[in-house]
């Protein structure tokens, strides 16, 4: 039922090819990132909604983009710069609306949640083990898709525990001739790519 309410209250999710292309151009703000800016912004929006504990963070990020695309379609341009700031403004409205909807549907969610826990507990354990295997397999596959130097860096960066890890990171940064901060960001990016790859792989299987 709550899903129905959300479907009704949410903006029309469909986005025409023209509108989507226009959205990409607007996000690129004069450069051509080949969609990279869109993907990065979507990732940030999803993380934002998720930090605010919204259960449908992906859908809310898409809704934010839909609203921006419609504004671009109607007005031709958006004066607010940079585009990321406007994205945040719209995302905040989307969040507040979703919070209001959430309050109305919270009881149903709780009931549904408790039922799903009681239902078929042993089946759920088997499913979890199977999913775990799938994820391990995906991780192996995705690690192989990284460039050798990226794989080496990300493994070296994260391989040790505690104090050894700090020493190793310091050595790595010195070896690459970059600061610890730059190394951290580089390793994070690679890990983010890996994480996204595993996510896509698991959904596809």
């Amino acid at each position: 039922m709550d899903v129905l309410i959300q479907e009704i209250e949410r903006e029309e999710p469909t986005l025409t090819q023209v509108a989507f292309t226009r959205l990409l151009e607007w996000l690129d703000d004069g450069t051509d990132s080949h969609g990279e800016t869109y993907l990065e912004m979507r990732r940030r929006l999803v993380a934002y909604f998720d930090r605010r504990n919204r259960p449908t963070a992906d859908a809310l990020a898409d809704e934010t983009f839909n609203r921006i695309a419609k504004t671009l379609e109607k007005c031709g341009s958006i004066a607010t710069t940079p585009p990321a700031r406007y994205c945040y403004t719209i995302a905040r409205f989307v969040l507040l609306e979703d919070l209001r909807r959430g309050r109305r549907s919270v009881q149903f969610d709780e009931v549904r949640g408790s039922k799903s826990i009681e239902w078929g507990r042993s089946d759920a354990v088997d499913e979890a083990a199977s999913a775990h295997e799938r994820r391990l397999d995906c991780l192996d596959r995705c690690l192989l898709t990284l460039k050798p130097d990226q794989r080496e860096l990300v493994v070296d960066y994260y391989r040790d525990a505690q104090r050894q890890r700090i020493d190793r990171r310091r050595e790595l940064a010195a070896k690459l001739g970059i600061t610890m901060n730059a190394l951290g960001i580089r390793a994070c990016r690679i890990r983010g790519t890996l994480e996204a790859c595993v996510d896509t792989c698991c959904k596809a299987r």
Binding site: L136, D140, D156, Y158, R159, D160, R191
Partner: peptide
């Protein structure tokens, strides 16, 4: 999973 894999590799 990732840290386990990285730990084994290292």
């Amino acid at each position: 999973r990732f840290l386990a894999a990285a730990g084994r590799a290292g």
